[in-house]
Nucleic acid binder design. Structure first.
Length: 765
DNA sequence: GTGGCCGCAGTTTTT
DNA sequence: CTGCGGCCAC
């Protein structure tokens, strides 16, 4: 290989003198530079110094990221292992590595490329002692975290009703997101929990984790930061190693991640952050849009590149999305420009459509899907994007009755399922006897007569002798403290686990796992269970055993699973996709259906109630994300009535519907809704059997003559109803007002009983 | 120790 | 209305 071959990086280390003499030029016709627009090219080739790439939806972000890494490696500015590339999900990391490998080959394998958490884990393993952990510490998932916290709370006699463990856990996690160790927590929000003992409990929780030689996800970052800040030589080492940093989805970073990046970038100052403030939708889990907004303050003189050419969507989709997001304040400001050309004859405006209720909405959407399918569109090119998980139900039902295949993305992940977590606990206990959490989880699962009393005394012995629960169990099984029955059960359990452990080195690990699940009676337990989902669980356990075959050892498997808890979705058949708007970020579809655009559903009532304008703007960004997923067409729907927790509620259209600009939108409504307004129309609608009947015949959905929004919209609070007034409601008929609270009325309906409804949906009789 | 009943809450999610 | 968690009674 020639000395100039950029792909020989693996074989020869470039001597420092070489690096000092300047990077090698990269041929301008390198394959990854082909077809880039000027802004993309700038983002790819401006390798030195800080740079912020503001990359709007559909502007080729992934292409730029991978090309930049390829460019970096080819320029020989740094060895692969001197380049750090950070993503948020394992999926994104894998995709990036695959794409870089396709461009430059084997060197891609040596990049420090991964999620914040996986990279931190890798670093922290080397310095674990500095934070009081063994290098073999385990990473707890959410379930274990909560269990540990509950134990701490119980020991401290905190009333779990007054202070729900979940709430405290959330507060602790937000503290960790902000890099607050227990000693740094002061008057932070949430500190008043548990009678003001939240901080103390946080400290105890941390102590307990250390005692278990474990860390939670937040600790991976927090501990790494602590290491960096407490040992200058360690920090110096990593700062020196990482000459080039690349960060994806920068708008989603939290304070801890931000500090981590800033520390690591300090020496070489070659940091490239890619993100889009308009797609920041994770502030509720600690992400700080502020990180992206202040980039140029942290790195003075930073280059800023805007990617605004959109290669995904039609001009109407871009126009609608842009106008919507323009309602937000404090943006860095980007304008998406169509980068593709479209035939003005066939390009569709985005559509909004009002329906009577959720059922009609599902019917409409599924009819549209069928119509598209008849036109030759693939089901997999269509997505129904909902605000919250419960909204999927009505669409699933309709799709099932219609016989269209679909896939709901984002159910419980494989490794989070109960049966998988139990099975994992067995494996963990066999692999590492000291794993107390695993022990507790399965010591009496399946039931073997070891209840709380038995477990309690194991705990006590463990604490007194300062040994693990497992060792305590072994001791107790030979003594007389326990009653005969539990003692026998425990002896059997101890013997079983001991036997499995003895097989660790001889039996293939997948086979061993199968043996454990069989001999423990765990599989049998589910087989005997007559819940409808039990057979599925047995299937999952088989899958787990199969998954084990992919790894060279049990230990390797367990290590891997802690961080990479993913859905391994099966082969993609041609199915309609249903998922949440959050889940859809980063994906794209030809046709996107956006149902439930109603006040209180979307924007979600809680988002507004909890964080006001901020919450509203995040909801609006979510709407923006939803619209910009579409390549060709968007249908926004909203219902006048919706059953929520089995209570019928009158719904107002989402304010986002109105924020869509006329120029790019075509509005329609089922007959009588919003179209004509007024009492007569409403009554006619109520009596019209067409409501619940099929609207088949395609456009039999009678389009309102007037754009819906030119009709006077009933204004909340304008009714001026008072107790005793007689009113009429579309759905519930006549009734008497019992009470009035702002725009909300409590009404005793003659036939439908007492309901709370918005006054805009009743009229005086 | 286990099974049943009552009471309450009920977005978004990755690691 | 449903599901989960906690408490109480066998």
């Amino acid at each position: 290989m020639s000395d100039l071959d950029p792909f020989s990086l693996n074989d020869d280390v470039v001597p420092p003198s070489r690096l000092a003499s300047g990077p090698l030029p990269v041929a301008p016709d390198a394959p990854w530079l082909k077809g880039l627009n000027p802004e993309q090219l700038e983002a790819v080739t401006s390798l030195d110094g800080p740079i912020l790439v503001l990359s709007g939806a559909g502007t080729g972000k992934t292409k730029v990221l991978t090309a930049r890494l390829a460019q970096l490696l080819a320029s020989r500015r740094a060895q692969p292992w001197q380049c750090l590339a950070v993503t948020f999900t394992n999926r994104a990391a894998r995709e990036m590595r695959d794409r870089v490998a396709a461009l430059v080959g084997p060197p891609a394998q040596d990049l420090w490329l991964g999620t914040f958490h996986s990279l931190c884990l890798r670093i922290l393993r080397r310095h674990a002692a500095l934070v009081g952990l063994g290098s073999d510490f385990t990473v707890l998932d959410a379930d274990d975290q909560l269990r540990v916290l509950k134990q701490v709370m119980e020991a401290e006699r905190i009333d779990p009703k007054a202070t729900p463990p979940q709430a405290l856990m959330g507060v602790i996690q937000r503290w960790k997101d902000r890099a607050l160790t227990p000693d740094k927590v002061a008057g932070e929000s949430g500190a008043d929990l548990a009678g003001g003992r939240a901080r103390e409990l946080y400290r105890l929780y941390q102590d307990r984790l250390r005692g278990l030689n474990a860390s939670d996800f937040g600790d991976l970052l927090l501990h790494t930061l602590t290491v960096f800040l407490s040992d200058a030589s360690v920090l110096d080492h990593w700062q020196g190693q990482f000459r080039y940093l690349l960060v994806d989805e920068y708008q989603d970073t939290n304070v801890a991640q931000y500090l981590w990046l800033r520390l690591l970038a300090q020496k070489h100052r070659n940091i490239c952050c890619v993100g889009d403030d308009d797609q920041s939708i994770y502030s509720w889990r600690g992400a700080e849009v502020g990180n992206i907004l202040r980039f140029d303050k942290d790195f003075p003189g930073a280059r800023v590149v805007r990617l605004e050419s959109n290669y995904r969507s039609t001009p109407h989709i871009l126009g609608a999305a842009s106008a919507l997001i323009a309602h937000n304040g404090g943006r860095l400001g980007k304008t998406l420009r169509p980068g593709l050309s479209f035939d003005p004859e066939t390009v569709e405006k985005i559509r909004t459509h009002a329906v009577w209720d959720g059922e009609a909405e599902a019917r409409l959407v599924v009819e549209e899907i069928e119509a598209l399918q008849r036109k030759g569109e693939r089901l997999a090119s269509m997505a129904i994007l909902v605000r919250a998980g419960f909204q999927t139900r009505e669409f699933e039902e309709r799709l099932i009755t219609t016989g269209l295949p679909y896939r709901v993305v984002g159910g419980p992940r494989f490794y989070e399922r109960l049966e998988i977590r139990d099975a994992m606990a067995y494996l963990r206990l066999v692999a590492s006897p000291a794993d107390g959490l695993a022990f507790e989880r399965i010591v009496n699962t399946p039931k073997r007569g070891l209840g709380e009393a038995a477990v309690q005394s194991i705990h006590i012995h463990a604490r007194e002798l300062d040994i693990s629960l497992w060792d305590a169990a072994r001791v107790l099984s030979n003594r007389t403290e326990l009653k005969p029955k539990p003692r026998q059960a425990l002896a059997k359990f101890v013997e079983d686990v001991g036997r499995w452990r003895s097989l660790l080195d001889t039996m293939p690990h997948a086979e061993l796992a199968a043996t454990i699940l069989d001999e423990s009676g765990y599989v049998e337990m589910w087989k005997a269970d007559k819940q409808p989902d039990s057979p599925g669980r047995v299937e999952n356990l088989k899958e787990l055993v199969a998954a084990l075959e992919e790894y060279s050892s049990l230990a390797e498997f367990l290590e891997h699973v802690a961080l990479v808890m993913e859905n391994d979705e099966k082969a993609e058949a041609d199915r309609v996709v249903i998922m949440t708007l959050h889940g859809a970020k980063g994906l794209e579809f030809d046709s996107v259906f956006l149902p439930g655009w109603e006040e209180e559903v979307f924007p979600h009532a809680r988002a507004l109630a909890e964080t006001g304008t901020q919450g509203l703007e995040e909801e609006r960004r979510l709407a923006y994300v939803g619209i910009t997923r579409a390549r060709k067409r968007v249908l926004v729907t909203f219902a006048a009535n919706r059953r929520i927790y089995n209570q019928w509620k009158s719904q107002l259209p989402s304010r986002f519907v109105e924020e869509l600009p006329e120029a790019h939108v075509e509005r329609s409504a089922d007959r009588g809704l919003y179209g004509g307004g007024g009492l007569q129309e409403s009554r006619a609608a109520w009596n019209d059997p067409g409501w619940s009947g099929s609207r088949r015949g395609g456009a039999a959905a009678v389009r309102a003559q007037v754009p819906a929004w030119t009709a006077p919209r009933p204004e909340a609070g304008s009714g001026g109803f008072k107790a005793g007034d007689r009113v009429f409601h579309d759905k519930f008929g006549n009734g008497t007002v019992l009470a009035s609270d702002g725009g909300k009325l409590e009404i005793a309906f003659d036939k439908a009983g007492t309901k709370k409804v918005l006054d805009s949906f009743v009229v005086a009789v």
